[in-house]
């Protein structure tokens, strides 16, 4: 009961959209991709990834399995968690989410079914938790910076550089910094919490930003749009995989991966308890991790697939670990504490 209450509190906190429009029941998108041939089965996927982004991957799966129809439903990560954590069966066979902490909590609380990978060697150990949670992308979280704000200065390479830049040229950044509002965004909260965990520089940066009247966002899209429109100079903690295609034609916008540490988010999949077709879900996970699936992810969806070698080549990339530590920041009291600290740093009068 208490747990349910806590979960409700969490959902309320995570799901509040900037304008207060709570999507109670409806999904952001809910589409059916019919089978190419005679339908042999239907796989219902609940995902936080936009349909447009993921469509090539779905197409690739259907090419390999022409008898399978796909229902692809997009919703927010908190809604996804709430749906799957509820006692009633949600009617989905596969859950794909970028909210690693919530996925981890689902798996830890026994709400995910086990799946034996077809090619276990293809997935590094850090990219899965038990046989229940599987990462299939590794997406660096970076900083978007308008080149105009730099003038003739060299672009910052680390958070220390950024702090120095903001300190030396506050006029270029005042009211022109965008970042996630961790109170409203699950991803923003996860990034901020992991930043705080990985280095103390984060709090110095937060203090520095707080003095420059930052604008808070609940989603990457708005932040990037405002940056592109010239209203922002800096967007802190944006998913590179999401931002890169949107600023590809804008040479005046830099995507910086801080050298001190660049968080790397793992997009994960799990088979929820109560899945009607866990066999199809297993096939989909195996497809995501197959070479065909990796190619579709990289080239079709623009999402970098899990690659231990690539991670080793970029030592500043810190993959967020799939371990019980993720549960810590989901603790309501812990969250309260962190939000309080964050607010004190960032919301300066």
């Amino acid at each position: 009961m208490r747990q349910a209450l806590a979960a409700l509190g969490l959902i309320a906190a995570l799901a509040v959209a900037p304008l207060g429009a709570v999507r109670a029941q409806g999904f952001e998108d809910d589409r059916l991709f019919p089978a190419a041939g005679p339908e042999q089965g239907r796989l219902a996927i609940l995902s936080t990834t936009d349909t447009e982004v993921f469509a090539p991957v779905l197409q690739g799966f259907q090419d390999a399995n022409p008898g399978i129809a796909l229902r692809y439903t997009v919703t927010g990560s908190a809604d996804l968690y709430a749906l799957l954590a509820a006692d009633a069966p949600a009617g989905f066979d596969l859950a794909i989410s970028s909210a690693m902490d919530l996925q981890m909590k689902l798996a830890n609380d026994g709400l995910a079914l086990p799946h034996a990978l077809a090619q276990p060697a293809a997935l590094p150990r850090w990219a899965r938790w038990q046989d229940r949670l599987f990462a299939f992308t590794q997406e660096p979280v970076g900083i978007l910076l308008s080149r105009a704000a730099l003038g003739d200065l060299p672009p910052p390479r680390s958070r220390q550089d950024l702090i120095a830049l903001m300190r030396d040229h506050p006029e270029r950044f005042d009211r022109r910094i965008g970042t996630y509002d961790p109170r409203a965004s699950g991803a923003g909260y996860l990034f901020a919490a992991q930043d705080a965990r990985l280095s103390d520089t984060f709090w110095r940066l937060a203090e520095q930003m707080g003095g420059l009247h930052p604008r808070l966002y609940s989603g990457t899209a708005d932040m990037i749009a405002d940056l592109a429109a010239g209203e922002l100079t800096l967007a802190y903690n944006v998913l590179g995989s999401y931002a890169a295609p949107r600023v590809a034609d804008r040479p005046d916008i830099l995507l910086i991966e801080p050298q001190d540490h660049t968080l790397t988010l793992l997009r994960t999949a799990l088979i929820p308890r109560g899945a009607a077709r866990p066999d199809l879900a297993s096939a989909f996970i195996d497809y995501l991790l197959s070479s065909a699936g990796r190619t579709a992810l990289r080239d079709g969806a623009g999402l970098p697939p899990v690659d231990g070698a690539a991670l080793a080549r970029a030592p500043h990339h810190r993959a967020i670990r799939l371990d019980p530590g993720l549960l810590v920041f989901l603790d309501p009291l812990q969250r309260q504490r962190f939000i309080a600290e964050w607010s004190a740093a960032l919301l300066q009068p």
Binding site: W129, R197, R321, D323, P324, G325, L327, V328, F329, D331, L333, Q334, R337
Partner: peptide, 14 residues
């Protein structure tokens, strides 16, 4: 005030 040690939890899974 409760401040859960992230590393302790993380290590439980190591």
């Amino acid at each position: 005030e409760i401040d859960l040690p992230y590393d302790a939890f993380s290590m439980l899974g190591s």
